[in-house]
Design a protein around this nucleic acid. Structure first.
Lengths: 110, 110
DNA sequence: AATCTTTATCGTAATATTGCAATATTACAA
DNA sequence: TTGTAATATTGCAATATTACGATAAAGATT
């Protein structure tokens, strides 16, 4: 890459891109959908549900956790992952506001 | 990576991740915001507006175009980029539906 | 035609991501 | 304490992304 230039942009743009990057792999979408679909936030069987090795799932979970989208609670020797509702709301709002920026006047090229 | 396993996931999950990946760099957010903010969809001055080289901007534009978020119309020797309103709407809906999947019952871990 | 402007592409370097086997860590159970 | 189950971390290989200078391509202008 030469040198990363992500820091030349607005904080809000960087936050947006961090969240988007968390969503940018189908495995992470699948993990989130699994957590969302299971009423109680079971965790380790995410590994059973997805066609990836345990180590790989673990890494994806870390990415999601660092983006603030999920959090993990220790339950015995297992860990219970679930959505971080507060950050989820912030993320949702960021995307919503962004998508709303398009109105009919903006679309010029036929 | 060893070998990519993105194709082991649902088409919808892959489509979601492709859009998210398009949003996953602050430069591309900045480009989209610039296109959205300028009423008429001027293009080449995106290069002037951002702190990146012309070749780099061009690459980011291709990523956005391949994701279907923008389209380019040739105007003389310049190119006019603008939002692809139809795909923008599809993308927006995908994200909206996804974010709506969280309800209070889902958040278990205090 | 010669030149300028604008955008795309090529080549290359630096860095990041993805994936997994192997291993470590942690908590429980016997 | 020894074993077992669950998760994280390490190390490494393969691939993707980011960045830009140089150059090419295509339309405009003179």
């Amino acid at each position: 890459m030469g040198i990363s230039k992500t820091n030349l942009f607005d904080t809000s743009q960087q936050q947006f891109s961090v969240w988007a990057k968390a969503f940018s792999h189908p495995a992470r979408i699948a993990i989130l959908e699994h957590i969302l679909s299971v009423k109680s936030c079971i965790c380790g069987d995410i590994v059973l549900a997805l066609p990836l090795a345990q180590a790989t799932i673990s890494q994806h979970l870390i990415v999601l956790k660092q983006a603030g989208l999920i959090k993990g609670n220790i339950e015995g020797n297992a860990i219970c992952y679930c959505i971080d509702a507060e950050n989820w709301g912030k993320c949702k709002n960021t995307f919503l506001i962004f998508f709303e920026k398009l109105n009919i006047q903006n679309t010029c090229c036929s």
